[in-house]
Amino acid sequence: MLKDYQLLLGSASPRRHELIYLMNLPYRIVKMRVDESYPLHLKGADIAEYLSRKKSMAYFKNLTDKEILVTADTIVWHKDEALEKPESRQNAIEMLHRLSNDWHQVFTGVTLAHLSLQTTFSVCTEVYFETLTDEEIEFYVDDYRPFDKAGAYGMQEWLGVVKVSKIKGSYTNVVGLPTAELYIQLRNFIRSIDSEND
Rank of each mutant, 00 (worst) to 15 (best):
T108K: 00
A113W: 00
L69A: 10
M95E: 06
D65H: 14
K85V: 04
E81T: 09
R53C: 15
S122G: 08
V123Y: 06
R53V: 13
D102L: 03
F121R: 07
T71S: 12
R89S: 06
H97E: 15
N62W: 14
S100Q: 01
T108V: 06
I93D: 13
K54D: 00
V110M: 08
S116N: 09
S52K: 01
A58D: 04
F129P: 07
T71G: 07
Y128C: 05
P86L: 10
T111N: 15
L115T: 01
K66N: 14
Q90P: 00
E87Q: 08
T108H: 03
H78V: 04
E81K: 13
F107K: 01
T111Y: 11
T74K: 09
T64K: 13
Y128L: 08
V123E: 09
L112C: 05
W77V: 01
K85H: 01
I68V: 08
T111I: 07
A92I: 02
T111G: 12
T119N: 15
N91P: 01
V76R: 07
E81M: 04
E130N: 09
T131G: 00
K61L: 02
S88I: 10
L99R: 06
L63A: 02
S122R: 02
D65M: 10
E84W: 14
K61S: 12
T131V: 11
A58G: 09
L96M: 08
V123R: 00
P86C: 03
R98H: 12
E130Q: 14
T64Q: 10
Q105S: 15
M57A: 13
S88A: 04
S100R: 06
H78Y: 15
Q118W: 04
A58M: 01
T125N: 02
M95A: 03
T71F: 06
V123T: 12
F139V: 02
N62C: 02
L69V: 01
T131K: 15
D134P: 10
L115W: 00
T111Q: 14
F121D: 11
A82G: 05
A58F: 00
T120S: 15
N91I: 02
L63R: 04
T108N: 05
T131Q: 14
V76C: 13
T119A: 14
L99H: 09
L51W: 09
F107W: 10
T133C: 07
Y128M: 07
W103H: 04
K66R: 13
D65C: 08
L63H: 02
K54G: 04
H104C: 04
A92L: 11
L63E: 03
I75R: 08
T119R: 14
Q90G: 14
T111H: 06
T64H: 09
S88F: 14
T125S: 11
T120Q: 15
N91Q: 08
W103L: 07
K61T: 07
D80Q: 12
T133M: 12
E138T: 15
D134L: 08
E84R: 14
T131D: 06
L99A: 05
N62R: 15
A72K: 11
Y59Q: 01
S56T: 05
S88C: 12
F129Q: 04
S88P: 15
